[in-house]
Design a protein around this nucleic acid. Structure first.
Length: 186
DNA sequence: GGTAGGATGGGCT
DNA sequence: GCCCATCCTACCC
């Protein structure tokens, strides 16, 4: 399976909302597995209390304040890992949670990693599911996603995309902020 | 079709 | 000690 060029750092060096919308339709690639990004959420700096960066720089959140184009991976509910891509210039907080993929390569490998998935579209249809399907772990925290093995590429055939905007999922603070983005009728 | 409850551990008060 | 940017199973329509 062949895709377009790897997204450069300048792509990520912008407001998190722009990066979250721009990532839709791009391809997340890890080794033989890949999926089209179909759902994202923006987590902002400043007064976004839902963001892990809201309480400042800690061991966990340092990467969110660092240079753009890196992975922020954290453990949630003691069992699952979630992948974010860091946005905004170096020194400013902001990242994008990758919430769902449409699998396009390495489906057989993903099935072995996700035995609970009944259908192909369930292999990576959630933030914890996609990290399992693509074998992304906390070992990737801080990894540069502008150079492999974990990268984001342009699609082989770029297409026009219709974006739907909704509030973010599964949070209590700033629950009404419209920062979740999906490809409508993918 | 739908949802209630449990698993499970790190981060922070 | 409490709070999670979740997922799966069991059970109930």
């Amino acid at each position: 399976m062949t895709f377009g060029p790897i997204l450069k750092r300048a792509f990520y060096n912008r407001p998190a909302i722009e990066v979250a919308r721009g990532l839709l339709g791009k391809v997340l690639v890890h080794g033989p597995t890949a999926g089209i990004i179909v759902e994202t959420e923006a987590y902002l700096g400043g007064d976004d209390l839902a963001s892990h960066s809201a309480r400042g720089v800690t061991d966990r959140t340092r990467v969110i304040f660092g240079p753009p184009g890196h992975a922020y991976v954290y453990l949630i509910y003691g069992m699952y890992e979630c992948l974010n891509l860091v946005a905004e210039p170096d020194g400013q907080a902001g990242c994008v949670l990758i919430r769902a993929l449409k699998p396009v390569a390495g489906l057989d490998i993903m099935r072995r990693r996700r035995p609970a998935a009944r259908k192909p579209e369930d292999l990576a249809s959630g933030p914890g599911k996609l990290t399992l399907a693509l074998a992304i772990t906390r070992a990737h925290n801080g990894a540069d996603v502008t150079r492999g093995p974990l990268v984001v590429r342009a699609p082989a055939e770029p297409r026009a995309i219709d974006i739907e905007t909704t509030p973010r999922i599964g949070i209590s603070k700033c629950a009404d902020w419209p920062l979740r983005f999906l490809i409508r009728r993918p």
